[in-house]
C-alpha cells in the first residue's frame, strides 16, 4: 500500500536529494523520454536510465515491505476476533496483504534486484516502509478503521499508479487496488455494525479514529513544498498526482463517510470551504511524522524486530527446502546417468 513511503527517501531525514547528473547514452535517453511523453509503458527488457531503475526499485520494494510489515498490526487481532465471520475476514485480509507483498517483490525483481537483497534492506533498517504501521492496534475497531482509512488512503495513492510508466508495477497495482477497495468496504461495513451496536462498541470506533486519523493524513507524505522527489517522479510517470492533492481528495471523500458512520474526525479546523470547494483541515504534526519515519515511533522496533525474527527463525525451513531440492536433483541425475 502505503503511500507515504513513495515519497520518502530511504535516507529520510537527510533531505538532500541532488539531481543525478545524466551520463546516459543520449539517443537511448531520447527514445525513453519520448515513450514516457507518449504515456507508453516501459517493460523489463527495455532500456531505461539507471536513476529510473533505482527509483522504481526503491519505491516498489518500500511498497512491498509496507504490505509485509502491515500484516502485523492487524495480525495482532486475529486470535481475538469477536466472531468467526470477522476472524475469517481478517485472516483473508492479512493474507491478501502478504499476496500484495509477493506481487510487488516480483515486480521489483524484474528490475534486477532479488527478494533477498530487498529483505536485507528492510532487515538492516536501510529500507523504509509506510510509517502508518508503526502505531499500535489497541482495540478491535482498529481493524475496521485500518480497512476504512489506511486501505482507503492507500487506494487514493495507488489508483494513479495503475497508470504508472513501468509495466509490471502498473499491472501489479491494478490487481492490488481491486483488493484494497474490497478491504476498505469490509472495514467500513464492520464499523457500521459496531456503530449500530452498544455504547462500548461505539466508543471503540471513536477511540480508533482518534488515534489513526492524523496518521492517515500523514500517509500521503510531506507537503509538496518539502517533497524533493516528486518532480522527478512526475516527469517519469512514477508519481502522477502530488501529495497535497491526494491528501485533499482523501479528506473530501472521507468526511461524508464519517458522517454516515457517526464518528467525529478529531480536527476542530475541519470544515467545508465554499470558495475552494474542498474541506479545510488542521496542521499535521510533521515533527512526529519524521520521528516515526526515522525509526523512533511507538512500534518501529517491535515491527522490525518481529520481521527479522520470523526471517531468522525460518532459516532452517528454507535451508531444508533447498537441501531437499538439491538431493532430488542429484538423485535424478544419478538415475539419468
Amino acid at each position: 500500500m502505503y503511500t507515504q513511503s513513495f515519497s520518502v527517501p530511504d535516507n529520510a531525514g537527510q533531505k538532500n536529494v541532488a539531481a543525478v547528473p545524466s551520463t546516459e547514452n543520449p539517443e537511448l535517453m531520447a527514445a525513453f523520454d519520448a515513450r514516457i511523453d507518449a504515456d507508453g509503458r516501459i517493460e523489463p527488457q527495455d532500456w531505461m536510465p539507471e536513476a529510473y531503475r533505482k527509483t522504481l526499485v526503491r519505491q516498489i520494494s518500500q511498497h512491498a515491505h509496507s504490505e509485509i510489515v502491515g500484516m502485523l498490526p492487524e495480525g495482532n487481532w486475529i486470535s481475538r476476533a469477536p466472531s468467526l465471520k470477522r476472524k475469517a475476514i481478517l485472516i483473508a485480509k492479512v493474507q491478501d496483504e502478504g499476496g500484495h507483498g509477493l506481487y510487488l517483490y516480483s515486480a521489483a525483481e524484474t528490475l534486477g534486484t532479488s527478494r533477498d537483497q530487498m529483505l536485507e534492506g528492510l532487515h538492516s533498517g536501510k529500507a523504509k516502509y509506510s510509517s502508518i504501521f508503526n502505531y499500535p492496534t489497541l482495540n478491535w475497531a482498529d481493524v475496521g478503521v485500518i480497512g476504512w482509512l489506511v486501505d482507503g488512503a492507500a487506494i487514493m495513492n495507488q489508483i494513479p499508479l495503475c497508470r504508472c510508466s513501468y509495466g509490471p508495477y502498473s499491472r501489479a497495482m491494478v490487481r492490488v487496488c481491486k483488493e484494497e477497495s474490497f478491504h476498505q468496504r469490509q472495514g467500513y461495513e464492520a464499523l457500521l455494525v459496531m456503530m449500530q451496536g452498544t455504547e462500548a462498541q461505539r466508543a471503540m470506533v471513536q477511540d480508533a479514529v482518534n488515534r489513526l486519523w492524523w496518521k492517515c493524513l500523514a500517509m500521503f507524505g510531506p507537503p509538496d513544498a518539502d517533497s524533493p522527489n516528486s518532480a522527478q517522479g512526475m516527469r517519469w510517470g512514477i508519481k502522477r498526482i502530488s501529495n497535497d492533492e491526494l491528501r485533499q481528495k482523501f479528506v473530501d471523500a472521507t468526511v461524508p463517510q464519517a458522517k454516515v458512520l457517526g464518528v467525529t474526525l478529531p480536527d476542530p479546523d475541519l470544515k467545508w470551504n465554499e470558495e475552494r470547494q474542498h474541506y479545510d483541515y488542521g496542521q499535521i504534526d510533521w515533527q512526529e511524522f519524521w520521528n516515526t519515519v526515522e525509526g523512533n515511533g511507538p512500534c518501529n522496533k517491535e515491527r522490525l524486530a518481529t520481521r527479522v525474527k520470523a526471517h531468522n527463525d525460518g532459516q532452517w525451513v528454507r535451508d531444508a527446502a533447498l537441501a531437499y531440492t538439491r538431493k532430488q536433483q542429484q538423485r535424478a541425475q544419478k538415475e539419468a546417468a
Binding site: I68, M71, L72, G75, I78, S79, K87, A88, I91, A92, V94, Q95, G98, G99, G101, L102, Y105, T306, K309, A310, D313, G314, Q315, W316, V317, R318
Partner: peptide
C-alpha cells in the same frame, strides 16, 4: 493462524493462512 505474519517464508505464510481460513 498464529503463524500469520511470522511464517518462515512469505509463500508459506500465505499458505498457512489459507489452511487456517
Amino acid at each position: 493462524a498464529e503463524w500469520c505474519g511470522h511464517g518462515p517464508i512469505l509463500e508459506e505464510d500465505i499458505a498457512m493462512g489459507n489452511v487456517s481460513l
